[in-house]
Design a protein around this nucleic acid. Structure first.
Length: 305
DNA sequence: CAATCGTGGAG
DNA sequence: TCTCCAAGATT
């Protein structure tokens, strides 16, 4: 007799009602129609230029990438041009952006596109994910922003909006993505995703959120609950706590690569720029940089690529 | 899965 | 000055 009503699983949190999510989605989209930031990659649908921008945007603030967008897309005008510039050229171009492995992967992605996709950026999620340096976020971003598909992007900004305004509780990347996926207004994937990212980046910020100006202030779950603790503190696995930078391997690696952007150098010169005493430790990071394809050695000289 | 991977601006 | 963290991906 006991007919199973509905399967409630502890590992599969329920989604808020679809109608509610759709209403929130339209509210965000409408706000975006009047408040989107003027960012250069929003004026194109060139899949390669958007791919370049999205890779540069990984863990790097939009205003910093915006300053570099023109020079990046000029030097990396197409997958073919990127391949021809060479890996070292792309790494050199990446100066100041951080996370130099992204330059290596961007060059590799260009090669893959030329070799496997005839130089045309693929549009399916699986094909995009098969490219070096293109993960869950970036693949969805290219689908939505270059091909205007109604998919949801899920980055640190969206994660905050989900945890705070929509759910009012900490969540996981998987669940948060399911929730936002149900919010995308049909036919408005491009504008909705741009809008929700901007809500997170300009209003629902990590620190000191501007709730008074938020289009969701009326229905914000966090605000309505009156909770003092921020639901977005340890949420979504989109942004992880970072170790101390001063004196770290990351700092020394960055100095080595930056030095090589000026031209080739000897080990002694690389050792000097690290500011480290222990030569063995410097040798270790140089070996690692070679293994990772960031630098090469010709006889006694090191260079990019 | 937790650690690793740069650099710079904001508070 | 110092801490936090930013349109994540990879191993």
């Amino acid at each position: 007799m006991s007919s199973p009503q509905r399967a409630v699983s502890l590992t599969t949190p329920e989604l808020p009602r679809k109608a509610v999510l759709q209403a929130v989605g339209r509210t965000i989209d409408e706000w975006g129609s009047r408040n989107l930031r003027a960012l250069p990659w929003r004026d194109t649908r060139d899949p390669w230029h958007i791919l370049v921008a999205e890779v540069a945007l990984q863990q790097t603030q939009a205003p910093r990438v915006a300053e570099r967008y023109a020079s990046l897309t000029s030097a990396l005008s197409s997958p073919t041009a990127t391949v021809e510039l060479g890996k070292g050229g792309v790494i050199a171009l990446w100066s100041g952006l951080g996370y130099n492995a992204r330059a290596v992967r961007l060059h590799a992605a260009a090669e893959a596109i030329v070799e496997r996709f005839s130089g045309v950026v693929p549009s399916s999620n699986d094909d995009l994910r098969s490219l070096p340096g293109i993960g869950p976020y970036t693949a969805a971003a290219i689908e939505a922003f270059a091909f205007e598909r109604d998919v949801a992007v899920y980055d640190t900004n969206v994660a905050r909006v989900m945890a705070r305004a929509v759910l009012g509780a900490p969540t996981t990347a998987t669940h948060g993505w399911q929730v936002v996926s149900a919010m995308v207004p049909a036919g408005s994937g491009w504008s909705f995703n741009q809008a929700i990212i901007d809500v997170g980046a300009t209003l629902c910020t990590a620190r000191n959120p501007q709730c008074d100006a938020c289009p969701l202030r009326r229905r914000c779950a966090w605000k309505r609950s009156g909770a003092l603790i921020d639901p977005a503190l340890s949420t979504a696995g989109t942004s992880r706590p970072q170790g101390r930078f001063e004196g770290s391997a990351r700092q020394a690696r960055g100095r080595v690569v930056e030095r090589l952007r000026q031209g080739s150098a000897t080990f002694r010169q690389l050792h000097d720029v690290t500011g480290w005493e222990d030569e063995a430790k410097v040798r270790a990071i140089v070996v690692a940089l070679i293994d990772e394809g960031l630098i090469t050695r010709h006889a006694a000289n090191y260079s990019l690529g």
